[in-house]
Design a protein around this nucleic acid. Structure first.
Lengths: 247, 247
DNA sequence: CGTCGTCTTGATCGTCTTCAATGTATGTGG
DNA sequence: CCACATACATTGAAGACGATCAAGACGACG
């Protein structure tokens, strides 16, 4: 995808069968039948990226596409004077790359160690054309991403700094809870997994403002800040009110 | 789509054949072959909306989807306290509605007189499943919308009021020029077609700030403001610099 | 000619940024 | 094991930018 070296067939995943894959039911291959899954299996190739490594960057014409299997990556755009805005968060099962378009106009950077399950773009497009079920899954995923992008636009265009930080905390808390089939709850411990700079770039704020708003939420008893970029929810209804989208 | 009354088969379009349709080559039906186009033709139904009329609103479960044939419509979200953010602009050939999902979480409002070419959602989904070419077109259109949404996130998260207004003027000027196969140019007359309130909701600003920024761009000789929400480009390179995405 | 909706202009205020310093965790080599 | 370096985070003070509040101007339309 980028010209940077990416480790191929990382330890532990080299032989992973698609049917055993942790993201099998949520990734772009979720609706694939056994024959097309077999075809994907034949041509897939795992690639690993270290935290901070660039997966793809603006202006490139990536020759591979794929699914994020492990880790977290950021999609961001950069204005010429250095201002950066994150425009997407890639989590396991998310699709990376864009079939039918060559050049990309944003940067994709690994935020943690990342493993991708990749395909050569041309191969994948051929399979896509022959398997409407896979194409349909990609359409559904893209529509979900569009909804998420629009929610984020409302946050960026209309919410105060406090509302933005509260919204982000809730989003991460809910996503983490959903992974174990639960709802967010008071007392929940939430690993943010993002640096202050990443949070600021995501929320359209500065790191100082983000830091102050975390302080304010803690002072108001809505959260307790912990070490290593974690926090604990102390007042879920209060946090929801602070996020600004409850009535 | 909404419960509001929409005029059916408006004058002039009642008998329009798909092959004569002005948006035939850009809409969701662009890749459709003749048999499936015939099927769409049989089940399509034109609906008209007056300027200001709601086409669909938050929480509804629209039973129809379709293509915008004529006019302009806004997609916006509303926070409980009344703050509004526009998250999309629908122009002729754009697709309205979302296959595979029932409830929608934003409002769609006609900004001018609007004509939609609609299909019952269930019918359209059946055709979609049987015609990968149509599904592929919808995927491409959705990917384009996602790119546009991400560009807009950068504007909302990181650009100053002046940059936002300059960016919007350029976007509209370029889109208008592209309709006649040209590039934007100094001297071009640009009809904005949006009220100050719509512009403010689109840019995440207030109407006063929008007004002041238009005044400032005019004072700096970048544009000349005209009547009826039009303006004229006076210094295209200057405007591009003011928009903030040039190097 | 008066009314309504839209737009502009002015004065003031609050929020967030900017600039600067300090604090805290983690790791490195002596 | 500790001084030191580095990256990340917090805190403070000042200022800028856009929001808010408040008039007034303009244009369309009865």
């Amino acid at each position: 995808m980028s010209q940077n070296p990416a480790t191929l067939t990382p330890a532990g995943l080299g032989q992973l069968r698609c049917l055993d894959c942790t993201i099998r039911l949520r990734a772009v291959c979720a609706y694939a039948d056994l024959p097309s899954l077999g075809e994907l299996e034949r041509i897939k190739r795992y690639r690993s990226y270290a935290s901070g490594q660039t997966i793809a960057s603006t202006g490139e014409e990536p020759s591979v596409v794929g699914s994020l299997v492990e880790g977290v990556a950021h999609i961001s755009t950069l204005l010429p004077d250095g201002r950066r805005q994150m425009v997407g968060l890639l989590l396991p099962s998310d699709f990376v790359g864009r079939p039918g378009r060559s050049r990309i106009d944003y940067d994709i950077v690994a935020a943690t160690a990342v493993t991708l399950c990749t395909f050569r773009k041309a191969d994948f497009e051929r399979i896509l054309a022959a398997n409407p079920a896979i194409e349909r899954r990609l359409l559904d995923m893209t529509l979900d991403e569009l909804d998420a992008a629009r929610d984020w636009m409302t946050l960026l265009g209309r919410k105060s700094a406090r509302e933005r930080v509260a919204s982000l905390v809730l989003m991460i808390a809910r996503r983490d809870a959903a992974l174990v089939g639960a709802d967010a709850r008071t007392g929940q411990r939430v690993p943010l997994r993002l640096t202050r700079q990443a949070i600021a770039d995501y929320l359209g704020l500065t790191i100082e403002t983000v830091s102050r708003q975390f302080g304010a939420l803690a002072r108001d008893g809505l959260v307790v800040l912990g070490a290593q970029r974690t926090l604990e929810l102390r007042d879920l209804p209060g946090l929801e009110a602070a996020a600004g989208d409850a009535a």
